[in-house]
Amino acid sequence: MLKSSALNWNELADRALAGELLTREAAHAVLNAPDCLLLEQLAAAYRVRYHYWENRVRLHFLLNAQSGLCPEDCHYCSQSKISTAEIEKYPLLAKEKILDAAAQAKKLQAGTFCMVISGRSPSERVFTQVLDAVQAVKANYDLKICACLGLLSQEQTQRLAEVGVDRVNHNLNTSDDYHSQICTTHTFGDRIATVENVKAAGITTCSGGIIGMGESDDDVIDLAFSLRELNVTSVPLNFLIPIPGTPFEKIQELNPRRCLRVLCLFRFVLPAQEIRIAGGREVHLRSLQPLGLYPANSIFIGDYLTTPGQATHSDLEMIRDAGFAIESPDGSPIETDSLKTMTSSV
């Protein structure tokens, strides 16, 4: 195996910028680099990130529009049928509550409003209500909408496109080889099929994974390579929160440096993609959260599905203090003075 000390991180960045795929040997070296090289890794990953995104940070606002009562057995999820976690469980929120959440997303300068519902796949009744809510948000707020609705058919993705959904999220979560260890009620192929259906409908693809579920380095690398092969546009990376009441409640494999190395790997493999630090950012990166912005260019602001996020003003201060700029919905950076005003008002 290639030793991390033998790698030239800037050369690795040059290759990523040239569109070359990392060798598996180099990918292993990225994940297993010693802590003393971490800042060099981050600097090289930032070169790639800056080429495509400069110092902008894109914000996403997440709404858990339907919670719990899911028939799937995903071992990491507090909403699955096998979870005993104490969470709120409710059917699809009324359109008025969804609009209230969209108004909050707009206030926070989020570029994307993410609507998530629990379940394997939406029933026709729920799906119709989602379509109606999307149209209402589009009519009232200038927000891009990302829908995360479970497994979707070609007909469903086409209907989402017709009402103006900008993006559909459906995570691969892990590698093909490891998928059966985290879920048995659907396959890795089912997830690939949904992403392909999204692409066929002309909707922007959003797909990522969860790190820290007991997977091997090869599984992490395979996930990154699969996302590159699918040419997904947006890549949310979650870090497992071992929620009491789920089968993975006792898994504790992550530390901040491991998370940062994973983010660097994904930036080298997916140089032009939006890479978002998603669930588990506050839990696992902790005091090193600002360093995550060097390989990644996007975060969720506010809460996640069933777990709380960092206070909004803390996120905004983190971005400002690290010298980054929030990306406005039109793609331009928000000036520092405006960011100070936002920070003081939330």
Results as ranks from 00 to 15, higher is better:
Gly208Ile: 09
Leu223His: 08
Gln181Val: 00
Ala201Asp: 12
Ser67His: 07
Pro295Arg: 02
Ser345His: 14
Ile326Val: 04
Phe266Ile: 04
Val235Asn: 09
Asp190His: 10
Leu288Gly: 01
Lys107Tyr: 14
Leu31Trp: 04
Leu291Val: 08
Tyr178Asp: 01
Asp330Gln: 08
Gly280Lys: 05
Asp35Gly: 02
Asp321Gly: 00
Ala102Leu: 06
Ala85Trp: 02
Ile301Arg: 05
Thr343Val: 15
Thr23Lys: 03
Ala322Thr: 05
Asp132Leu: 12
Ala18Leu: 13
Asp315Trp: 01
Leu285His: 06
Phe113Met: 11
His170Val: 01
Ala65Glu: 01
His75Ile: 11
Glu162Trp: 04
Gly280His: 02
Ile117Pro: 10
Cys36Glu: 15
Ser153Asp: 10
Phe324Leu: 02
Ile301Gly: 04
Ser123Ala: 10
Ser328Tyr: 09
Gly302Lys: 03
His313Cys: 10
Val232Trp: 11
Thr233Asp: 15
His75Tyr: 15
Ser234Pro: 11
Ile82Gln: 03
Tyr50Gly: 00
Ala105Pro: 04
Leu254Lys: 06
Ile243His: 07
Gln135Asp: 13
Gly309Lys: 02
Gln154Trp: 08
Pro308Val: 05
Glu88Cys: 09
Lys250Leu: 12
Lys144Asn: 13
Thr343Gln: 14
Thr341Ala: 15
Leu99Glu: 07
Phe113Cys: 09
Asp73Ala: 01
Ser344His: 12
Pro34Ile: 00
Ser226Met: 13
Ser226Gly: 07
Leu12Asn: 05
Leu22Gln: 02
Ser175Met: 00
Thr157Trp: 00
Ser287Leu: 13
Thr157Asp: 01
Cys70Phe: 06
Glu124Tyr: 12
Gln158Lys: 15
Val195His: 04
Leu316His: 00
Asn197His: 15
Ala65Pro: 03
Val30Glu: 02
Trp53Cys: 03
Met318Arg: 05
Ile334Val: 09
Leu223Glu: 07
Leu305His: 01
Pro71Met: 01
Glu317Gly: 11
Asn140Met: 13
Asn10Ala: 05
Val163Ile: 08
Ser80Val: 04
Gln104Asp: 14
Asn10Cys: 06
Val57Asn: 02
